[in-house]
Simulated assay, not measured.
Amino acid sequence: MTTILIVDDDVHVLKLIDIHLRKEGYQVVQAADGMEALNILSSRTCDLAVVDVMMPYIDGYRLTREIRSRYDLPVILLTAKNQIEDKEQGFSSGTDDYLVKPFDPKELLFRIKALLRRYDAQPDELLIQLRNTRINKKSYEVHTEGRTLLLPLKEFELLFFLASNPMQAFSREQLIEQVWGLDYDGDERTVDVHIKRLRERFSKLTADFHIKTVRGIGYLLEAKRV
Rank of each mutant, 00 (worst) to 15 (best):
Ala169Asn: 06
Lys87Val: 02
Ala31Val: 00
Glu107His: 14
Pro102Leu: 10
Ser93Gln: 04
Leu205Asp: 00
Glu157Pro: 02
Pro152Met: 01
Ile176Ser: 08
Phe202Asn: 10
Glu66Met: 15
Phe156Asp: 01
Gln129Cys: 10
Tyr61Val: 05
Asp33Ala: 09
Gln129Trp: 08
Lys137Glu: 04
Leu198Lys: 15
Ile195Asp: 03
Leu16Ala: 08
Asp97Val: 05
Phe156Met: 03
Glu188Tyr: 15
Ala121Leu: 08
Glu141Ser: 03
Leu158Met: 14
Gly218Thr: 13
Arg22Leu: 01
Ala114Cys: 03
Ile128Ser: 07
Pro166Arg: 05
Ser164Asp: 08
Ser43Glu: 12
Leu21Ser: 07
Met55His: 12
Asn39Arg: 06
Cys46Asn: 10
Tyr26Arg: 03
Phe160Ser: 13
Thr206Asn: 01
Arg70Pro: 01
Glu88Val: 12
Gln129Asn: 15
Glu188Asn: 15
Glu145Ser: 13
Arg62Gln: 14
Leu205Ser: 03
Thr45Tyr: 05
Leu205Cys: 01
Leu14Gln: 15
Arg111Ser: 01
Leu63Trp: 01
Val29Asn: 03
Leu159Lys: 05
Ala169Ile: 05
Val53His: 08
Ser42Thr: 09
Gly218Met: 12
Ser164Met: 08
Phe202Arg: 11
Glu107Gln: 13
Pro152Tyr: 00
Asn165Glu: 11
Arg134Gln: 07
Asp47Lys: 09
Lys138Thr: 12
Ile84Thr: 06
Pro102Lys: 15
Val28Ser: 02
Ile17Thr: 11
Asp52Ala: 14
Leu175Thr: 07
Lys212Asp: 14
Asp208Trp: 10
Val100Ile: 14
Arg111Met: 00
Val100Phe: 06
Lys224Tyr: 04
Arg201Asn: 10
Leu78Ile: 05
Asp185Met: 07
Pro56Cys: 13
Leu78Lys: 09
Glu188His: 14
Ile211Phe: 01
Gly146Trp: 00
Ser139Thr: 14
Lys224Pro: 00
Val28Asn: 03
Ile67Val: 12
Tyr26Pro: 03
His210Val: 14
Thr2Phe: 10
Asp52Trp: 07
Pro74Arg: 13
Leu109Glu: 01
Val7Asn: 14
Met167Leu: 04
Phe110Trp: 04
Lys15Met: 12
Lys138Arg: 11
Lys196Leu: 13
Gln83Leu: 04
Gly94His: 09
His194Thr: 05
Phe209Asp: 11
Asn132Tyr: 07
Lys113Ile: 00
Glu188Lys: 15
Val28Ala: 01
Leu126Trp: 13
Asp86Cys: 04
Thr148Cys: 13
Ile217His: 10
Leu130Phe: 12
Ala169Cys: 07
Leu77Asp: 03
Ala114Glu: 12
Leu162Gly: 09
Leu182Gln: 15
Lys212Ala: 15
Lys137Asp: 10
Asp59Cys: 13
Gly181Gln: 05
Asp124Glu: 07
Val11Gly: 06
Ala207Glu: 14
Lys224His: 11
Arg62Lys: 15
Thr133Ala: 07
Gly218Ile: 11
